[in-house]
């Protein structure tokens, strides 16, 4: 699905509006305790372990499936899930599980590129807004408004149309849409950190603008950003699948996840597994990434 959840799952986005947070944040020094607690939480490891498997799929797909993801056996087409073909086979007799496993790397690369674009451009803008003075803030905030006002979705379509659909164009198209959310999170985080006593102290002790930004502000603002990173990865995967649904996906035989559910839907009535099982994988991964985001947020909470 291609809906962009701007500022997903994160309270920090909106909190700076209420002065209450300022009071809470003064407890920064006691952060170590909940941090270790969060790291020991079994829930965290239950979230991380499956994601590690998914990374394994991306790096060493052949270890997880012996079938060829792009060359099928036509005679074995549209078989139901079985011990041999866990996720069944598709209309050309290709093993669907193999396609999911082998599609992981392209999926993560495309979504990863999208998130990276959002992260870099968003961090830049957010930092600029929060530290470079009132005028810069006003200008940057209007820019962010513009990015939100132009439907990111339309921009994605234009970019994918302008350049042929592939990891790069899809990544850029989806990434542009996530710049605004990163910028807003970074901005509010930096403003929060900026107001902490020790940052004020660092400035007073003669630290230059950049040294304070890089030594103190950025490292201390990265928690929510990391959390947003995890969540946004899931959002990007869904956005790419939504583009695939509308016919703006990578060309076959690429076994990209979003494309698998988008194309498998044609057989919804006759071969349910084609769209349902890869769909379940996406849903699971997106939920796990969202969970990871929450855990990261707890760990880095100051």
């Amino acid at each position: 699905m291609s809906i962009k959840i701007d500022e997903p799952l994160l309270e920090s986005v909106v909190e700076p509006d209420s002065p209450d947070t300022a009071g809470k944040t003064s407890g920064a020094n006691t952060a170590t305790e909940p941090k270790q607690g969060a790291l020991r939480s079994p829930a965290l490891w239950l979230t991380v372990a499956p994601l590690v498997v998914v990374i394994g799929w991306a790096l060493f797909p052949s270890l997880f499936s012996g079938f060829d993801p792009i060359t099928g056996v036509p005679a074995h087409k549209l078989q139901e899930p079985s011990a041999q073909h866990w996720f069944g086979t598709d209309h050309l007799g290709r093993d669907v599980f193999a396609r999911v496993v082998h599609g992981t790397s392209q999926t993560l690369l495309t979504a990863g590129l999208a998130v990276l674009i959002g992260l870099i451009a968003g961090t830049g803008l957010g930092l600029l807004a929060a530290t470079a003075g009132r005028a810069a803030d006003a200008v940057t905030m209007r820019l962010i408004d513009v990015l939100l006002a132009v439907p990111g979705f339309l921009i994605s379509l234009i970019i994918v149309t302008a350049f042929e659909p592939g990891p790069v164009s899809l990544g850029i198209g989806v990434g542009i849409a996530s710049i605004a959310s990163f910028a807003r999170v970074v901005r509010s985080e930096v403003l929060r950190v900026r107001s902490l006593d020790y940052v004020e102290a660092a400035f007073m002790n003669g630290g230059t603008y950049w040294s304070v930004v890089f030594k103190h502000i950025l490292p201390n603002s990265c928690g929510p950003v990391l959390a947003l990173l995890a969540v946004d990865l899931g959002v990007a995967i869904l956005a790419i699948s939504g583009l695939g649904f509308l016919g703006f996906g990578s060309p076959p035989p690429t076994p990209e996840w979003g494309l698998l559910i988008a194309e498998g839907r044609q057989y919804l009535a006759s071969a349910w597994w084609l769209t349902t099982l890869p769909g379940a994988v996406i849903v699971a991964v997106v939920i796990l990434l969202a969970g990871l985001g929450r855990h990261l947020h707890k760990i880095f909470k100051f």
Binding site: V160, T161, E164, G247, F248, P251, P252
Partner: peptide, 10 residues
Amino acid sequence: LINRAADNTF
């Protein structure tokens, strides 16, 4: 073969 069949935009 780069299969862009059924891509109406292309």
